[in-house]
Amino acid sequence: MLEHERRGRRRRVKGVVVCIVLAVGAGIWHNRATARGASDPVTGAVRTVTAPIVRALAGAGNWIGGQIGWIFTGRATASENRLLRQRVEELAGENAKLREEAAAASRLRTHLGFVDPPPAKRIAADVLSVYPSPNVASLIISRGSRDGVHIGSVAVAPQGLVGHVTSVALTTSVVILLPDADSAVGALVQRSDSRAIGVCKGSAEGALLLSYLDRNTVISVGDAVVSSGQAGNRGIFPKGIAIGTVESVSPAGPSSTLRVVVKPAVDFGRLEEVYILR
């Protein structure tokens, strides 16, 4: 009896040791691949196998949310609709004016001999999951290496910059969002009297901060912040993509720089599609 129990215990310990060895091995493999800037096959395979299930569940969840959501938000949606119509009319006028100015700027650029870069090719991708982990601000999208997505590709939405791709499997990719602590992008304050350049970085608290701005920089709440086209921490984000608007400006402790909090242009929690720039 005792011998039988002992054998059972040994078998159990052997089982858990095998599992831990597998887990540690996969972890080391993953870390090495990530350090090389590549995706590891283990997590890639798990994602490729489970992506159809996640996609079906996300689709069902969104459909149910859409069907039930309007019952609770009907009245609020109607008043929001009225406000949005007014805003669209205002923006249509502003848009026409800006188009005219853009055409003039384009003409001048041609006369002065500037060469515009070719427009980036876009791949549309569905968002399978938003913030799958509470510890990393990320998205899972429905496009992978099969579609030409690679590590460092830039993800954008119609409202502005979303983030960059950090891991690619055959049919899915992980996009690290701008507010993640691991994210950084060269940024430019869009006002005619400043054009200050800094770096927009995520933070551990999830806020988006515009760093390396001198205390004397001319900047105020409400200013638009766009990508500067200079290198961030991964590759180069194209110039002129909206990042957000300045939410608060304060001196950054005893240093001679400013602490600028930026409100992202994109509501990451509500994203359903993104575009990957190639």
């Binding site: 831990i20 597998l22 887990a23 540690v24 996969a26 972890g27 080391i28 993953h30 870390n31 990530t34 590891d40 283990v42 997590t43 890639g44 798990v46 994602r47 489970t50 996640v54 999951s129 799958p132 982990s133 510890n135 990393v136 990320s138 899972i140 950090t166 891991s167 992980v174 690290i176």
Partner: peptide, 18 residues
């Protein structure tokens, strides 16, 4: 469970699985 969770994060796959 650790592998599924880790596969959708971009880091700490081994720690999650262990």
């Amino acid at each position: 469970c650790g592998f599924v969770e880790g596969a959708y994060q971009s880091s700490s796959v081994g720690s999650l699985a262990v």
